[in-house]
Amino acid sequence: MNAQADTATQAGEGEYNFAYLDEQTKRMIRRAILKAIAVPGYQVPFASREMPMPYGWGTGGVQVTASILGRDDVLKVIDQGSDDTTNAVSIRAFFEKTAQVATTTRTDEATIIQTRHRIPEKALKEDQIIVYQVPIPEPLRFLEPRETETRKMHALAEYGLMHVKLYEDIARHGHIATTYAYPVKVDGRYVMDPSPTPKFDNPKMHEMDALQLFGAGREKRIYAIPPHTAVESLDFEDYPFEIQKFDRPCAICGAENVYLDEVVLDDRGGRMFVCSDTDHCEERRAAGHTGEAGGIPLKGEETAR
């Protein structure tokens, strides 16, 4: 991390400042991050910059990452758990080009993990930071579109409306049907949108050893959960919070109790369920675990198809 000011000359190529953003901007963002850490779950406004990618591609997360990135950091970028989808690949390439930092796909090797919609299966450690890309930071917006009003509700901890949303779920579906962006209360105070991660990942946020940062570029908000902070998923006494359950292990590595993606194999209804966290899956296969599909070659080997 070593987030000392890196001047353009130090950055080497002379084309971009280190990690793209200018130093003033990074300082401004760091101040917002510090405030966000000091008030866990509170949405801190910041002067979000135009980035060389469209909104919705993680401009908030990229700005946070750029502001905390140091020369010695090792960066991992995932999109829906996968290191090799377009969004992850292009953000990784962006920082390789503008900051020349080392990148990895291995969760335990990374010092900073920028993510869209997942938390790695492997527990994060205290020397790691996870940066979430956030599309809509305001959990109350669903029912209260007025920003003036939602700010007041946060200020006064008036969160009855959040339960109205969960009530509607149960009334309509017989259970709480919200499966992602499931609202949480941070440190017993602020209700927060955990970004569109599956609720499967909510328990991982609770008392996590790593620092969690959230950046919303279009909405110009940063919020944070410091390490070892209580994160409680909202629920009803008679409809307690539950994570998704999968009735089978990963077809490739046989892992249980992990989040699975459905993969359609053909147009005759063939499909399989595999780890969403590709690194986790590869690591298990490297260690000799196989699932029912078995024998699918590891990365780098010749593909079966």
Binding site: G160, Y167, E237, D238
Partner: peptide, 10 residues
């Protein structure tokens, strides 16, 4: 209003 004053039993 009930939820706003802390009622948590659906």
């Amino acid at each position: 209003r009930l939820m706003a004053v802390g009622e948590r039993h659906y």
